[in-house]
Structure formats: structure tokens, C-alpha cells
Design a binder for these strands. Sequence first.
DNA 1: GATGAATGAGTCTTCATTCAT
DNA 2: TATGAATGAAGACTCATTCAT
Lengths: 233, 233, 233, 233
Amino acid sequence: MPGGSAILSLTLSTMNHPRWVRRKEARPAEIISAALDLFVDKGFAATRLDEVAERAGVSKGTLYLYFPSKDALFKAVVSETIVPLLRHFEQRLSASTGKASDQLRMFFAEWWSEFGCTRMSGICKVVIAESGNFPEIARFFQHEVIDLNHRLLSRIIESGIQQGEFRPMDVDAACHLVMAPLVIQAIWQHSLAACQDLVSLTDEALIRSHQDNMLRAFRADPPAPAAPSGMNI
Amino acid sequence: MPGGSAILSLTLSTMNHPRWVRRKEARPAEIISAALDLFVDKGFAATRLDEVAERAGVSKGTLYLYFPSKDALFKAVVSETIVPLLRHFEQRLSASTGKASDQLRMFFAEWWSEFGCTRMSGICKVVIAESGNFPEIARFFQHEVIDLNHRLLSRIIESGIQQGEFRPMDVDAACHLVMAPLVIQAIWQHSLAACQDLVSLTDEALIRSHQDNMLRAFRADPPAPAAPSGMNI
Amino acid sequence: MPGGSAILSLTLSTMNHPRWVRRKEARPAEIISAALDLFVDKGFAATRLDEVAERAGVSKGTLYLYFPSKDALFKAVVSETIVPLLRHFEQRLSASTGKASDQLRMFFAEWWSEFGCTRMSGICKVVIAESGNFPEIARFFQHEVIDLNHRLLSRIIESGIQQGEFRPMDVDAACHLVMAPLVIQAIWQHSLAACQDLVSLTDEALIRSHQDNMLRAFRADPPAPAAPSGMNI
Amino acid sequence: MPGGSAILSLTLSTMNHPRWVRRKEARPAEIISAALDLFVDKGFAATRLDEVAERAGVSKGTLYLYFPSKDALFKAVVSETIVPLLRHFEQRLSASTGKASDQLRMFFAEWWSEFGCTRMSGICKVVIAESGNFPEIARFFQHEVIDLNHRLLSRIIESGIQQGEFRPMDVDAACHLVMAPLVIQAIWQHSLAACQDLVSLTDEALIRSHQDNMLRAFRADPPAPAAPSGMNI
DNA sequence: GATGAATGAGTCTTCATTCAT
DNA sequence: TATGAATGAAGACTCATTCAT
């Protein structure tokens, strides 16, 4: 228990502590948060509901007041965690205008800081791992999350092409290629990261390199031999 | 084996390499093959040894003659499947000489055809998913598989830089960025692929795009008359 | 109760016998009624208190204001339901005088119409089913219900014998034999009745047949000229 | 451990006792027998599979080798126990020929000795109690058991009528009325019997009385005033 | 070596009961 | 008094593992 409230908590502990408190509103979110951590860490099957309950600070029975089964809890974790995130992400991006290359830079930055580097990106790992056992979840994830993300990104790339900033290309492929390193890096954090003993390469450096690569690969070929190069990136 | 045919079977077995002797030697591989399919499909925990035994055409007890536990079987699947593959892959690549860009093209092609598009790439998915529960496996995979692959690839890129074909760059980052789309695509096949209703973009097209991008991104800047080179990004 | 309407509801409640005051008194009966239905339908163990509460229109906690446990509720259902019934039944029968055969006819009719054909006869089924788990209930039922009924019926038969209307016989056995088809029929209604696809035989017809049989079987042998009476069986 | 076998058991115990023995053939019957006892005693829901396993001398898991669920075990108990009984009963009855009254006497005797007085008659109680929760079982019992019994009995009664031994009557009703006391008595044994402190009336006496009653009630009315009575019963 | 019957620890799930509100 | 959120003990069921055959 962090320092400052020690006196207060002492005071409280001498009062007769209720065995439990009623927190109907907060419970689902707390349970989902606990479950997210564990599902990401151990996978669906290896996560015991006992643990989820303990981490959420409730009894095992309480889980069943809010979620009818472990499966349902898993589905809730996926959808409840991802959906608000997407809203937020969409909002920030839609506000951006300007050069496609700048929008793309923003996309990289936002995607990573708002999702990739958070524990929520662990969801990707679990959904991938469990897609065979939860086809509905997989479908939901594909259509609601991935497809949306794809649309956001392809809008940026297309506008870049139309404005002559990017060379003509297969936009679908480009989207996949932009996303792949981001997703891999997100997944890596929640899996093998622990094994890379000396990581000289930080996430940020990698993403910066990737961004650099992509902008190089996308930029329109100089129209003429005497092109005023120097438009860096 | 019921009485009367003992002699016959003995006779047969001395004649033409009897099936049951070969079986005994083939058993571990058969079991591993069955387990691979199931682990990739359903994950470690959701795979029942009953199923593995059935698919391998042996009884459940027989599994324990070859593998002391489910964990051990999992570890065997990972290491036994990956190691020969790596050997094969290393061999083919080491034979190639020539321009770095050609070697890189070969890397793409081989990696995909020899590993990415096979069921073995499903191992990646499972290792990632179970890395929290099997740290040893994760470490093994990181050090034996990923690091080796990284070394192979970085050798190619480095030679490209030295030969002036590729621009100077962070080779570590470049390796990651080359691998990411390949790995993602491999994982995708074993997870969400079933949900993408109309896939206009084939794996091959995507990889081709990726290859193009990388070669574009890597190629040394033309020694333009007065280009302010060097300020990448 | 949200603030503003407190006065109003107070006003109403003092006016015309407010519903909630009556409720308080009616609660136990309402709960017992709901529980009776469910116990009869599903048995003791398979009846959930949630359901009882819902059917009684109260919350689960309220049940515990009136009954300290599920067991206690069950006991209350049995005793509270049966006792008033017995009183009523006893009253109607004790009023009857006349020929024993007429009294017996009345017994049949009353027993069926007042108990057998009502949902209360389902109690018999549940008590029988749960007698192993609730020995007290079984004893209560045996001594308070069955024995009383037995006494009422044997009084009629004995008077018939004394008046020469019925042949001499084992009165205990006769009572059992009179009751058996009535009880069976009552139990049947609450169990297998649903499976008898075409029931050509109505309850009433059956009971009429039974009554006829019993009167035939009981009637004193005619003082035939030279009948070797007395060797019954 | 009871006295006499001490030496033997000592001898045995010094030999290395197998932790379990393989008894694939005998297990289902043993489990069903154990389950029958407990279901009859405590009802379906109150019977714990732990207890069944213990009584059957197996572990809990073994139950699931033979029966996929508690429900399935219950169904097996009902059908496996009743069916062979029915076969046996049908066989014995079909052999009997002669006067309808004699056949009826045999029916009474056989029904009681082969079924009514055995623990199997407890099945009736449980099926009745659980018919709401197991409609299939109820239907099976109604159609396979009750209807068959009904057919056997009605054949006897009908032949009695045709031969002029019994008076014309509603045969369906008569069957019900013959069965009711038998069934009640069977059920009683497994429920309230424990509470009847002084039982002056034995099962046999009661059934004898019932038989007596029925034969009296069924016998054809003497055709003429000068009927040679004396056909006792 | 091979089998598969048997085991029992472990997990999800239910529900009577309690108690803060 | 009434509510219903919270509890936790209990029970059905699974499945990796063992071992008699």
C-alpha cells in the first residue's frame, strides 16, 4: 500500500471492515481488467477463474453474476477492451489533415503509443492463439478491428497516391506491409521479449526505421532526372 | 497377437523389412507429426493426448513410452520440427552467391516455400501463445531459431551494404522489418485466415510487394550530382 | 422509495388498507404457495430459491425473513398446506351420518374433490420422494396426515361392519386398499400423466369404478340359504 | 475386518496388492447397482457421484468411462434395471394357463415376489419423483414398463370375463385398481415405511386382502337365485 | 513394447445463505 | 422491512498420468 494513506488505512482497519462492498457498477470493468492481464499472460485455457477472481478482488461466484461462463468472459474481454480503443484511435486520426506522409507518421505514432505499447496489444496474441477455438471471436476481431484499421490506413495511403506524394501501388498490400512490423512488435512484447537478453534495438528505434523504410518505399519516383531531391523522406 | 500367426509374422518380418519394426522407429516422428497438427490447431492446453494418440494411430499409453509428459511432447514438437528445417534452410541459402539483392530475393522465396506456407509455421503461433507458460521453449526458440534466422539474413544485408548495393542502415532493424510481414503472414494462415471472406490479395502477391518495397527501401541512393544524401529520415 | 412520493404513499396507505401492509401478512402464504408449485413440479433439490422468490414476487433475501432455510421452507410447505386441508376435510366428514356405504361414497367424493384433484396432492409425491432426506417430514406426514386419514376412514368401515352392512374384515387392510387407488391417481397427475397420450379413462370414472368395487367387496354376504360362508379366500 | 479371514487377509496384504484391477465387463453392472441403491434412497439430485463411485468400488473418473453424465447414468439405471425384470416377469406369466382367477393369483404373487418386495421397486418412486425433470425417462417408463404390465394384466382379466368367471367390467379401470395397492405398497417400502412404528399389517397380509377383494369384486354375479354359491372368492 | 482401464487432482459452475445498503 | 450483490462450499466433469494385462 503506497505511503501516504497509511494512517488513513490504519484508521479504517480498526473500524469493523465490511466483508465485502457493493460495487455493481465497477465490477465488470475490474473483472475484465484482471482477466485481460491473465489471458494475455497465460492464454485462455491456462487462466483459472480463481486467479481472475482473486486479481479482481472478488470471489469466484461473483464472476458469474456478471459473465455467464469463462467463454463469455473471454469474449467480453476482447470486445470491451478493443472497442473503446478503436473509437479513440479513429477519433484522433480523423482529426488529422495535411500531407499523407505526415498523416502516416501520425498513424505510426498513435498506433504505437495508444495501443501497441499497452497491455491491450496482448489481445492480438490471444485472439490469434485462440482463433481456432473461438471462431466467433476471430471473426469479430477480423471484421471489427482489423478491417477498420485497414480502412483507416488505406485512406491515408490512397490520398497520398492521389496527391502525387506516393507512387501508385497495391494499397491492400501496402496496408499489410505497414501493419506487419507494428503488430509483430506488439505481439513480441507479450511473448518472447523476455528472452531477448540484450536488446540494443528499442521498439521506438525499430518503428522509426520502419516508418523511414515505408516512406522511402512509397515515395513517388522523381519525375525527371533533374529532380530537386532533398525532399527528405 | 493370436497364436497361430506368430510364425507367419515372424517369417514375414524377416523377409521384407516388416512393418512393425519400422513402426517402432517411426513412432516418435508419427506422434510428433500428429501433435504438431493439433497443437497448431487448438493450442497446447486444448489439445488432448487422446486425440494425439488417435491421430498418430497409437494408444494413449504408447505416448508415454516415447515422451515422459505432455510438456515434453510439446518441447519435442517444437525442437524436432524446427531443427531439421533450419538445417535445410541454412544449406540452401549458404550455397547462394551473387548480388545481395538476388540473395535477398532467394531468401524470400525459400523462407516462404520451405517454411512459411507449410504447417510448420504454425509452430510460431503456438510458441508465441505459450511463451508465458513455457519459458524454456521461448528461450530455445528465440536463441536457436530466431537468432539463427537473424544471422542468415543480416549476413546478406551486410554484404549488400559493403558491396554498395544497399544504403548504409541499421541492419538489426532491417532484419526485423524484412521478417515481420513474412512471419505475420505465416501466423495469419493458422489463425484468422478462415475469416477473411474474399481474399483478393494472395500470399505470393503480398510477399512480392514486400520484396519490392524492401529492395526499394534498401537500395543505395543514386550518386546524384548534388544530392544531400545521408540525412535519412 | 425515492423522496417525493413518501407522503403520498403514506397518505394512500392510511386511506384504504394499503397494499403493502396486507402484503406483509400475506407474504409467508405467498411464498409457500410459490414453493409448493415448484417443489411439486421439480422436487426439492431441483427447486432453486431464486425461482421461488421470483414466483412469489419477492427478492431472494426476503425468503430468509420468513423461513430460516430451504429445509424449513420445505417443512412449512408440507405442514402449512396439509393442516388446513385436513381440518376442512375432517369437518365435512364428521357432519355426515347415515348408512356406511353412503358415508364411504361421500369420503371418496370429498377426498378427490378437496384434495386429490388439487395441486396439493402433489405434496404426497414430494414427501414420498424426499422421505429419505427428510425423516422428520416423513414422520410428520405419516403421523399427522396418513394416520388421521386412516382413522377417519376406519371409523366409517367399522360402523358399516357393526351395522351389518359390510362383511367382517381386516379394517386396517381395507383402509389401505381404499386409499391406494386414490393416492396413486393423485400422484399420477403430478408425474406420469403427461405421458399418457390418449387417456380414455378419466379420473372420475376410475374412482367410480373403485368405489363400486369396494362396495361390492365390502358388502356383507347375503344370508344365503346354505352358503358355506366365512371361508373368505 | 471380520474375524475369520484375518490370517488370509494378512497373507494377501503382504503380497503386493494391485492398486486396481481391470474389470471392464463387470463395471457397468456394478456401477448401476450402486447407483440404484443411492438414487432410490436419496433421489437423483441428492445422490453424489462420489458416493456412487465409492459404493461401486471405483474412482469417480471411472464412472465417466461407462456413462457420459449423471443423467445418462440415471437413465441407464432405470432402463437396465427394469428391462431384464420385465422379460423375466413376462416369461413366467405367459407360461401360466388355467382359470383366470388362478392366473390373477399368480400375477399377484409373482409381481410382489419378483419386483414389489425387491429394491428395484424403488425405481418407481424415483421415476415418479423425477418425471418432471426427466420427461424422456417418464415416457420410457410409461410406455415400456407400465403399458406392458397393463397389457399382461388386462389379458388375464379379459379372459376371465370371456370365460364367464368375471363379471363384465371396464378392464382398463380394473387394471389400474388391481395395480394401485401393489404399487403403493412398493413405494411405501422405500419411503414412509421407516416411520410406521408398529406395523401390525404385513405386506403379505395386505396383498392377500387385496387379492381377496379383487376376486370378490370381479366375480360374476350369480346367474340365478338358486346359484350354487360356494365358489369361494 | 503396447494397450487402454483406472485414477484423482484440478476446474468450471451452481446455488443456498449472508449482509451491506 | 426489503433488496440483491457477494460469498464460498460443494459437486459435476475433464484429462494427464499410471499401471495391470
